[in-house]
Design a protein around this nucleic acid. Structure first.
Lengths: 209, 209
DNA sequence: GTCCACTGTTAGCGGTCGTTAACGCGAGCT
DNA sequence: AGCTCGCGTTAACGACCGCTAACAGTGGAC
């Protein structure tokens, strides 16, 4: 058996010609996003990268392993980036702005992965699913904390639901290709900020004080 | 062959004990929403309604026909409801409010269908897919028109993207069950309205005027 | 020059899935 | 009473799919 790391090991830093594994994962993500995990065959993925069918097993243990690896990788990247933005920010307002900017950029640059992420989670193997769920929860946590700092008197369940709602808004990017990237980024950023911080959106919801 | 209508024929009005076909469609929707169309077997659907496997073929021509019928039905219902709300409204602002309310209620009451709707469209047969796409487009059109009336100086592509973004926000409902239905409805309504009409959200985006 | 790890091929297996065939049975009409 | 028809059953078929086995070329290490 060839060497196969369970998760990505080389930190996927900047410019580097993509590994074969990465090429395959990218192609698989595109296919999964379009037809769903079970709607895509091994042969489809293979021919998408120029090799045919079972040749993939030189790079991955199984089809489930591909899904697992790509969802774990994306979840880790999302969480790490979000945390970094919050740490670097000078205050809650800036943290929220940076968080939105981060998520917008991420969604625009990883449309296929975003789609698969919220679509085929249920098709993951038990271990990977727990892993991804944990990472997702932590990412939401980051948002919840920032939201509650910027909009005080927001109870936690509401902040959590609001975070999910904003994710839905920002992840809508695969459904509309009518605008170019920059215009889309600006639009999504403004709408998200308005939804969260606009007067009469979150504020004044809870019957507190 | 038993009688099988291509689309729903009896207007699905109010109280009426659900047909067998409707029971089956509801169960199938739940399963499809969770594991994806190709991740659900005929036997799964059957046992979900108490019969086993091929008994379903007394009610539907094929598995694809189930998906087709439920997506066409939901798309028609969504469009019809949206149009009615706009017609009954006294002006653009009220129209937008009613449109949001309608979509919120719909999403909260049909979570499984909403999920399948934006997930397994690609797995539809050619004919049904075209049909659903057309209905979706018309529904977006309704929103675009109202948005451009309420927020003038919004160009059409922007309004379209904004509509999709709001759909994403409102359809986030299956991802967060932390709030009860009413609280969720209020939250989503306010966030959507803020995202669309809030100062600095849509308005002032285009370099017009 | 030899070797071997890496990466790819084709053939085939075992299981699953959608669908059909053949049959059964109770309810309601004549 | 008998026939029909709606609704369900089980058995089985053919296709497909994930995966393994067996084999092969190529390129770098020594």
């Amino acid at each position: 058996m060839t060497r196969q790391s369970t998760t990505a090991e080389a930190a996927p830093s900047e410019q580097r010609k993509p590994t074969r594994r990465e090429q395959i994962l990218a192609a698989a993500a595109e296919l999964f996003a379009h037809r769903g995990f079970h709607g895509v065959g091994i042969d489809d993925i293979g021919s998408a990268v120029g090799i045919s069918g079972p040749g993939l097993y030189r790079h991955f243990r199984s089809k489930d392993a591909m899904l697992g690896e790509m969802l774990v990788a994306i979840s880790e990247k999302l969480l790490a980036g979000g945390r970094r933005r919050v740490e670097l920010a000078g205050g809650p307002e800036e943290a929220l702005t940076e968080l939105v900017r981060w998520h917008v950029d991420f969604a625009l640059d990883n449309q296929a992965l975003i789609t698969v992420h919220e679509r085929d989670l249920a098709n993951l193997a038990e271990d990977d699913r727990r892993r991804v769920r944990a990472l997702q929860r932590q990412y939401v946590e980051v948002w919840v904390d920032v939201i509650r700092e910027v909009v005080p008197a927001t109870d936690e369940p509401t902040a959590r639901a609001a975070a999910h709602a904003v994710f839905g808004l920002l992840n809508s990017t695969p459904h509309s290709k009518h605008l170019d990237r920059d215009a889309m980024a600006v639009l999504l950023h403004r709408m998200a900020m308005a939804a969260l911080t606009g007067p009469g959106a979150l504020s004044g919801l809870t019957p507190t004080d």
